[in-house]
Design a protein around this nucleic acid. Structure first.
Lengths: 182, 182
DNA sequence: GATCGAAGTCAACACCTGTTGGCCTACACT
DNA sequence: AGTGTAGGCCAACAGGTGTTGACTTCGATC
């Protein structure tokens, strides 16, 4: 059972990389298998089919920090910094975003992440609980929009921002969406 | 030459629809031809290949309004409203965005749109010309992020916003990116 | 050392894709 | 009416895809 765990992990790592750089349809099982140095049929044996492989590769946790000790007026900056780091270090979210544009399952995964991870956090800090869903949706537009432009579309001025400048610009926007007024 | 113009246009309309709803790779020439009620080989005859067809279908003008008469503090609201209308009425930008995630040519088209249409507008209203590229990049993150969440990912809270609420929330963000301070 | 099951390989399947070339059809012009 | 040409259709090709099943190899257990 040892050897199989190793190749299982190799497949998953290769899949994440391919899905992230090529998207769901252009990432072929043959290419993933080649990256993992095994036969394509192994992928099927371990993960059933391509969709299930993607589902396994797109398992993702935003690892949102505990904000209970953060002053209310620093929330935006802290969150902006956190997301910045989270994306640079883990290509899974980029794979997810790339795939979500055409793949229903990936879209649903993103819905779940926002409902299960972003939503509760926003509900805790939003002034009026009734507004929490709208606020977390707006948060999503800015955060995903930034990731889209920086990591996928690679718009030069957005790629050119350093971490500090990005946080300085995006932070206040997030802050307003969290607990500011329209 | 008359009859051909008609089918040329039918192909283009069908292509736009398919590219918008399915993305570049899942939109097949056969499906587009079927929608246009012609043979797949006609698509090749008129547009050469799939990439050129996409290039023709993704021809796009943001039709940005003349903002010279708009007070500086109303720019964000006016632009937010304009983009809102532009997207509802023309699925071309959604096709472009969906395709850009995996298709190099579409990415370059988006780069060109922002360099050629958004950039100059921002340069005209930004307080410091040197900041203009960064400001237009930030503008892009918010605008494309909103379109992504509303029209492609269809995040429920973002879909649920009506035009008025969306402009009220997004407008000030755009305003700050245009001529505000970090 | 023989045995049994897991791990891995090979070749092939059925299908779908973009793309091509040959053929038919109908209309405008003389 | 005959003819040339552009518009349109059919059938097929070559290549790539996810997926499958039979075969081989390896390692641990008795």
């Amino acid at each position: 059972m040892r050897r199989s765990d190793h190749t299982r992990a190799a497949i998953l790592a290769a899949a994440r990389e391919r899905f992230a750089s090529d998207g769901f349809e252009r990432a072929t099982i043959r290419a993933i298998a080649a990256d993992a140095n095994i036969d394509p049929s192994m992928v099927m044996r371990y993960y059933g089919n391509k969709e299930k492989l993607f589902a396994a590769a797109a398992e993702f946790d935003l690892r949102l920090p505990d904000l209970s000790g953060t002053p209310a007026d620093r929330l935006g900056a802290v969150l902006a910094g956190h997301f910045m780091d989270r994306w640079e270090g883990d290509e899974t979210l980029i794979a997810l975003l790339r795939a979500a544009v055409t793949q229903q399952a990936a879209t649903e995964r993103i819905h779940a992440i926002f409902a299960g991870q972003i939503g509760p956090l926003v509900a805790r800090v939003a002034p009026d609980p009734a507004e929490a869903p709208a606020r977390s949706g707006l948060l999503a537009t800015q955060i995903l929009g930034f990731a889209l432009c920086r990591f996928i579309l690679k718009l030069p001025p957005v790629v050119g921002l350093d971490r500090e400048a990005a946080v300085a610009w995006i932070g206040p926007t997030i802050q307003r969406y969290l607990n500011g007024i329209p």
